[in-house]
């Protein structure tokens, strides 16, 4: 709109400048150049004013919001970068802590495994020793039982043999002893009983 107004004004200004040119012919090369290129001071001033107004308007309503938006974006990006760096640092710290914990856990696990192996070995050895002792006790008991059984058998056999011998002796003596033998034995027995 402003440009159109300036464009309408421009012919009158040009007419005024031409009058000035006519009035000042021969003022030099500058004047000739200005005249030849059609440069009008008012026109240029108006153009500059128009441009300044446009620039101000653009600055206020376009560039400034855009700059504000860009600044906000930049701040956001910077904040994001800062957050990212902090996050990365925290991540690294966390990873380091996790690595330390993992290492400690690994050490603890290795220790537990070693202790478990040691305990298992001790338990196994103890159980083996117990089993050996039990086996030895069972064998000893079996030997003892066998010996007792053997002794009992021998005693039974000896008792049975003695019983048979005595029974046989009794039967033989009962048949073979005569009354004279018995009378003689009775006299001896009477002497023995009376001497007690």
């Amino acid at each position: 709109m402003l440009s159109l107004l300036l464009a309408e004004i421009t012919p009158a200004a040009e007419h005024t400048a031409a009058a000035h040119e006519a009035g000042a012919q021969g003022d030099g090369l500058v004047h000739e150049l200005v005249t030849k290129f059609g440069i009008d001071g008012v026109n240029v001033g108006m153009q500059m004013l128009s441009f300044a107004i446009l620039a101000v308007v653009l600055y206020i309503f376009a560039i400034k919001p855009v700059l504000a938006t860009m600044d906000a974006r930049n701040r956001k990006i910077e904040d994001g970068l800062k957050n990212a760096e902090a996050t990365a640092a925290k991540l690294a710290e966390t990873q380091a802590a996790a690595a330390v914990q993992l290492k400690e856990a690994q050490l603890a696990a290795n220790k537990i495994i070693d202790e478990a192996r040691k305990t298992s070995k001790e338990l196994s050895e103890r159980e083996a020793a117990t089993a050996i002792a039990q086996a030895a006790a069972i064998i000893a008991k079996a030997h003892q039982s066998n010996e007792l059984e053997h002794k009992k058998m021998l005693e039974e056999a000896r008792g049975e043999i003695a019983r048979l011998v005595i029974a046989t002796t009794e039967r033989v003596l009962a048949k073979k002893l005569t009354d004279a033998d018995r009378a003689s034995y009775n006299e001896a027995a009477a002497r023995e009983l009376t001497s007690v």
């Binding site: 003695a162 005595i166 003596l173 002893l177 033998d181 018995r182 009775n186 027995a189 009477a190």
Partner: peptide, 26 residues
């Protein structure tokens, strides 16, 4: 008794006999 004597006086018993000696041996 087979041969020999066994004397009982009350609850006391005195014996000198073949069967007694065989019993002692057994």
């Amino acid at each position: 008794l087979i041969a020999g004597l066994r004397v009982r006086v009350g609850d006391d018993v005195y014996e000198s006999s073949v069967s007694g000696q065989l019993a002692a041996l057994s």
